[in-house]
Nucleic acid binder design. Structure first.
Lengths: 108, 108
DNA sequence: ATCCCCCGTTCATTCATTGAACGCATACTC
DNA sequence: GAGTATGCGTTCAATGAATGAACGGGGGAT
């Protein structure tokens, strides 16, 4: 799923709007460029608003605030990924069972 | 993991050496080119031997036979992926729990 | 012979991703 | 003041994985 990254970004920013792009990059294990690209997309979609307030500490960074529709979308994505993850979980369980059989079998 | 595809190929070919590259491509959900590339690598490593026997049906295809070390490697990969998958499984279980909490929470 | 289907092989193209480099703002030291 | 170190967001050339259309050829059927 391509926009799992979008979901994760929304989740992190909802928890703390002051996370920098580099922090997101580290946390999510993707490149800085990609984070920037995704943020741009999220702002474009109106899910995120980038307020510049320089009065915060020594940062010239933005605060990435979720818009109302951003909050809504984030919740909706959470539900969607819950379903997806549960399906993955089942698939994985089956895979593990098969592997378990294989790796414990004898030669004839 | 990059060589999960290698493992899956070995598994399928051990079950039936007469699977064509296109069938592998379909089954594994990867491109024909990639299957070809992987087979080449497996032969190179000595895990697979491509015997051409044209007497089979109307096929001019190979039979991809696992060498002894191919069989051994396949078993070893099975054990390795069993561990990996179980770790994934645990991670996923946690993720699902978190998502479950999120998507059932009320607004203040 | 021709036609058709499937085989393995190739490789130019596509596409996502990277990370080094840039300009800018702030804070600190001399 | 000037210098400089650190953090920020932004950019974009380069990388590398993956694709799939196209090719040559073998074998059966007509």
């Amino acid at each position: 799923m391509a926009d799992e990254i979008h979901f994760k970004i929304l989740r992190l920013l909802e928890a703390d709007p002051h996370v920098s792009q580099r922090q997101l990059s580290d946390e999510l294990g993707v490149s800085l460029g990609k984070v920037n690209y995704c943020l741009r997309a999220l702002v474009e979609k109106g899910l995120l608003k980038a307020n510049n307030f320089k009065n915060h500490k020594n940062k010239s960074a933005y605060a990435y605030l979720l818009t109302p529709s951003g909050i809504q979308e984030r919740a909706s994505l959470a539900r969607r990924f819950l379903k997806i993850k549960m399906a993955e979980y089942e698939r994985l369980k089956k895979e593990i069972e098969e592997l378990g059989l294989e790796s414990s079998k004898d030669k004839s």
